[in-house]
Nucleic acid binder design. Structure first.
Lengths: 140, 140
DNA sequence: ACTTACTCCTCTAGCGACTAGAGGATGTGT
DNA sequence: ACACATCCTCTAGTCGCTAGAGGAGTAAGT
């Protein structure tokens, strides 16, 4: 459990080796002790922290937000309004992104469906991109 | 219509001035003629090209894909299978992104809903991020 | 003991698609 | 004549890594 080399903590946390070193460099992960041969030695705490980071990154949280979340995690007696608000912001952002991707999906489907694979002169894909007014959603 | 300065073509195409110069630099937009005082002078063709680029960027196409699409647009007699396949790829990617965002949305909703704004020690947001097994979707 | 193969170290540079800012020239309106 | 907007080039920064060079330490097999 303790004194894992970077490769093992990488495998277990699913965070790539250079990324772990990068996280150390930007101060997201504390610099661990080193072996006699100057290798990083990680413990269970580091593994938990890395898993936390990786999970949050997967969920689309930015490094800065994760920094805040980690500070909160380190101080469990603080009020959690901030964590909640970060998650709420993220949710709003995700909803917005879903909405615009749905519009995009419709537009792409119209493009792809309308093209009969002849030549570019008659291609709906090119046509739609060239002429904004042929869009399904003129707002953008 | 012709001999617009960069600011005007920017306003009309909705592409920012430095971005237009950047597109010129990377060879996405041909370098226009210059005025006596060394200012770029754009014509209707450039405006159309920029609008095409902007529209495609909005739709999430990468610069490289746009480069291909522009080449196709410039040669209308080529078969359009490639344009079609680029759009199809993009559609698949968009669908995948929508799906993962929907899963994310659920997870964030569970986080936000489960937290009663007390203190971090009881916060579901932190808890879920720290412990992967509390996720709704264990795959990721 | 020696070799091979692997992991690890530091360091620098690169990615994509811009964006920001410095420092200066040109153009427009009053 | 002057103010002010717009333009020019150039360099460097953003974010979150990723790739590669060049070298050192370590584990397993012979």
């Amino acid at each position: 459990m303790t004194d894992m080399p970077i490769g093992e903590v990488s495998r277990r946390s699913q965070v790539k080796v250079p990324t772990i070193r990068y996280y150390e460099q930007i101060g997201l992960l504390p610099a661990p002790p080193r072996s006699e041969g100057n290798r990083r030695l990680y413990g269970a705490r580091d593994l938990r922290r890395l898993s936390f980071i990786r999970h949050a990154r997967d969920l689309g949280f930015e490094i800065d937000a994760i920094r805040t979340l980690l500070t909160l995690q380190d101080n469990p007696s603080l009020p959690c309004a901030e964590a909640d608000s970060i998650a709420r912001d993220k949710l709003a952002e995700v909803n917005a992104r879903i909405e615009s991707l749905m519009a995009l999906k419709e537009e792409l489907e119209a493009m792809v469906g309308g093209c009969g694979h002849r030549c570019v002169g008659e291609c709906r894909v090119i046509e739609v991109l060239a002429d904004h007014h042929k869009c399904l959603h003129a707002e953008h």
